[in-house]
């Protein structure tokens, strides 16, 4: 081991050898300024009764207590969890399959990869609105095709019935987010040394065994990481639901972020709205701790 590289002597801290460390420190500092301070601001404000443009008074956990007593909030909490778990679960499974498929030597895979990547690359606003239009009644291609193939008799109100609307927003989230999993996992698969598979071949492992004992453990840390990040993003996702259903019908698809948006910016109850958004913190922090442990175990 090159001991000199790993020991930090204060006199030589600003050296080319320490450049990575210096960059890491600067980046951390940058993130602390831009995210740490703003996070503390958010936490602080959620313990007051601040309204937009108004004064604030410290009220401790008052906002949170009020919120827990509110049925709409509890409904949003429930659907936030359902939405995140189902979306991320489906994205993970589909993304893994997609990565495995794209890792095969198939003709034209450069173009295929680019095409499969597109849902992630399109601005959410347009793709989500297009989905809305496709699921709609007038000029709605989904109902039209299903009726042409005689799968349904009458147009279905994809966004009008609570149960269907829930599935619809999950579906659009999955459609948009699967490439994130697929392409990230693909990169991890590409990094698995082919020698490992050759050893597997020699030992007579079948495809499933190779997946179980080589592919999965080798790509696990990326899979965990992508799941974690996607989970945090999905817990805070706003645009898919806002543009598809705005929380309806009958409040069935409200999540923390949509409720928070209306409360804070339209009803001007800033502190209350921030508190709603803060409510995902315990979940995400727990998730963060659990998954980080897994990643660092390796």
């Amino acid at each position: 081991m090159a001991v000199t590289h790993n020991s930090l002597s204060k006199t030589k801290f600003f050296s080319w050898e320490n450049l990575p460390l210096i960059i890491l420190l600067l980046t951390t500092l940058y993130l602390i300024v831009f995210q740490g301070i703003t996070t503390i601001w958010s936490l602080g404000i959620s313990t007051t009764n601040k309204t937009i443009g108004g004064n604030s008074k410290f009220i401790g956990l008052g906002n949170y207590l009020k919120l827990f007593a509110n049925g709409t909030y509890r409904g949003a909490m429930w659907f936030t969890a359902v939405y995140a778990v189902f979306s991320v679960g489906l994205k993970l499974v589909l993304g893994f399959v997609m990565a495995l498929a794209l890792n095969k030597p198939i003709k034209g895979r450069a173009v295929i990869r680019a095409l499969l990547f597109l849902p992630w690359a399109l601005p959410t606003l347009t793709s989500v609105l297009s989905w809305r239009w496709m699921l709609g009644d007038v000029g709605g291609i989904v109902n039209h095709l299903l009726m042409t193939f005689k799968l349904i008799k009458a147009p279905v109100g994809w966004l009008g019935e609570p149960a269907l609307a829930k599935w619809s927003v999950v579906m659009v989230n999955v459609w948009r987010g699967t490439p994130f999993f697929g392409i990230s996992i693909l990169a991890a698969l590409q990094a698995i040394p082919s020698a490992l598979y050759e050893v597997g071949d020699i030992e007579g492992a079948n495809g499933l065994q190779k997946f179980r004992y080589i592919t999965l453990p080798q790509s696990m840390s990326v899979v965990l990481l992508v799941t974690l990040i996607s989970m945090i993003w999905t817990l805070g996702d706003f645009s898919v639901i806002w543009l598809m259903t705005r929380g309806g019908p009958a409040n069935s698809t409200h999540v923390f972020s949509t409720l928070s948006y209306i409360t804070a910016f339209q009803n001007l109850q800033l502190a209350r709205g921030v508190a709603i958004s803060m409510s995902i913190l315990p979940f995400s922090i727990l998730l963060l701790i659990v998954i980080m442990k897994q990643i660092f175990k390796k």
Binding site: A154, G157, G160, P249
Partner: peptide
Amino acid sequence: TPPTAVGWNDGGNNAAYISGQ
């Protein structure tokens, strides 16, 4: 009312009228 009228957004009635529904 049109069968999927619950679930409309602001564009719903406009589209329904312009399309002849």
